[in-house]
Structures are given as structure tokens and as C-alpha cells.
Design a protein around this nucleic acid. Structure first.
Lengths: 148, 148
DNA sequence: GCAATAATAGACATCAATGTCCATTTATCG
DNA sequence: CGATAAATGGACATTGATGTCTATTATTGC
């Protein structure tokens, strides 16, 4: 139900958060997250335009998070590339409805709201510190490249 | 986040539930739900193949629900046309994961599970009897066509 | 059997999501 | 300045979702 683009964006951001505050090149992210590099660069552009990531050209450059992992949540990422579109008015354009959704669309929007809230309440730091038997995106915790 | 096809299928089923147990023609459903008729007939075919609706050709025929509105839930409908695809194994195909999703995919699957549950727990009868100021899909409750 | 009704099947059209490729621009290093 | 690294922008290809159209088949009523 989530688009491929959302999946890719989240993988990239998780990797960036893991390496934060160091930058990563698109190539590095692509390899770590198994996302097609050319497509990934498109996704990263969306994230940059939404001010979720910062980019730097040239040697030693790459992509880095604008905020700290503690201050960035999943909804910020999702909305940057494929916004969760809440149902605000009747999709049939019926006069009588409007703010008051009919029971069907009320239910659908409730589901969207739940997802939105769950994502808004989860930061990248939560994802990284979450104790599951699996580490985010990879078999072993990454070797952290020590900042220079 | 839900596809257009899901939206159309749900509208059609709500209309059919409202008219249940009487059948409706594709044309009637299309008009009542503002769904393009030719496309609706495709959607209804999916619903028939999943045994959610029954169809009858010829004069007096049309589409009708297989179950009673009390026994049919939203998940049955959604899964018939555009299944909610839970995350069962690591999308990156990582060995170490498998049943144990990493924190990111755990969160995503949690959201899917919430939606799935919410839909499974809502019957069409719930939708019809739900007391909002808006009636499902239309400005006024439908005139029920009395069965012959 | 004939006419009318309604679903069914399949071809086709359009558009957005996904994915690839390459030339260009910006930055760093020597 | 020249070489290298890396993002950027735009063109293009592919695929699936959405939508349209028409001929065919099944059913009913007369």
C-alpha cells in the first residue's frame, strides 16, 4: 500500500540517520539500501526540495540529514516524496457532505489518520535504537565512519 | 494511499449493501456512485471472481452481494481488488532478517496491520447504520426498491 | 423464435510511477 | 588551471493503473 518511492526514501533516510551527521554519496546509499542508483537520485532530490536532506557537490560531498535523527520523523519523510493525502471533503463532491464525511469515507480517513499519527510519532532515532534482533537494513550494525 | 480502484469498489459495495438483497445493474451503480461505468464493470468483475458479489445477466439481472451486509467487511472488499500486502520478509532480501523484520519494516508492517484490522472489524452493516450527519454516498437515504 | 436487457471479454488509449542514461554543473584537490 | 568527484537536470524507456469502446454471450419476456 506504500509506494516503492516511499520505501526507497525511508531506506535512504534510515541509512543517512545511521551515518549522521556524516554525508553519504548517492552511490553509497544505493549500495547499502539496494535501491537503483539513478532512481534514488530522483528520490533524494525530492527530499532535498522538501528540506529533509542537504546536498553537497564535489569531492567529500554527498547527502546528509538537515535535522538530527531525534528531530526527524517518518511522516516528514513520507510526506516529502508521496504525501499521505487525508480525505477532507466528500470524494463524490456531494453538497450535503463537505466537512461531514459519510460513514465510508469517515472510516477510510480514520485509517489514514492512524497511519499518519503512527508515522509522526516515530523518529529516526527511535528506528535506530529500536531493539529487534534485526538491525535496520543490514545484517550487522554498520561500522561508523568516524567524523574527521 | 488507497487506490482509485479500492475507492470505486467500496462505493459500489456500499450501494449494493444499501439495496441488498436486491440486485443493481452496473449502470445504476455507476450513476449512484459516480464511477465511470466501463471501468466499474472491470472492478465488479474482480469482485465477482473473488466471490464477493454475484452477477446475473439479462432482464431483471444485475449485481448483488453474496453475503449479508452484516457478514461482509471492508477487508473482504479491499483484498478482492487491491490486496493489502503485509510485509512478511525483509524487502532487501537480507539473510539475517526473514521472519524478524528490521525496525523500519516492523513499523511499516505495524501500520499495515492496524489498517487491516480496522477494515476487518468494519462490516457493511456498520457503515450503513453508522450515525453521521451524512448518509453513505448520497445526500439523502435511498428510496429502497421493494423486492418483488 | 425474436427483441430487449444486461453482463462479459478483449482490444485499445492515456497517464503516472518506476527506472535508465547521459551531458552539465559545482566543488575539491593538487 | 587541470583532474577528479559528485550532484543535477532532462530526455527517454518500461510498466501498471486507469479509463474507453465495441462485439459477444446469456437471460428474460412476449
Amino acid at each position: 500500500m506504500f509506494s516503492q518511492t516511499v520505501e526507497y526514501a525511508l531506506r535512504a533516510i534510515v541509512h543517512l540517520a545511521d551515518q549522521s551527521p556524516n554525508p553519504c554519496t548517492t552511490e553509497q546509499i544505493a549500495k547499502a539500501t539496494k535501491v537503483p542508483q539513478a532512481y534514488l537520485s530522483k528520490v533524494l532530490q525530492s527530499l532535498r526540495q522538501s528540506n529533509v536532506v542537504h546536498s553537497q557537490r564535489g569531492i567529500g560531498g554527498g547527502i546528509s540529514l538537515v535535522k538530527l535523527p531525534e528531530e526527524l520523523n517518518l511522516l516528514d519523510v513520507v510526506n516529502a516524496v508521496d504525501p499521505i493525502c487525508r480525505i477532507k471533503t466528500c470524494p463524490l463532491g456531494l453538497e450535503g457532505h463537505g466537512v461531514n464525511l459519510c460513514p465510508l469515507h469517515r472510516k477510510l480517513d480514520d485509517a489514514l489518520r492512524e497511519t499518519e499519527t503512527a508515522f509522526a510519532n516515530t523518529t529516526l532515532a527511535d528506528i535506530l535504537s529500536s531493539s529487534t534482533s534485526s538491525y535496520p537494513l543490514c545484517n550487522e550494525p554498520h561500522k561508523r565512519v568516524t567524523s574527521l
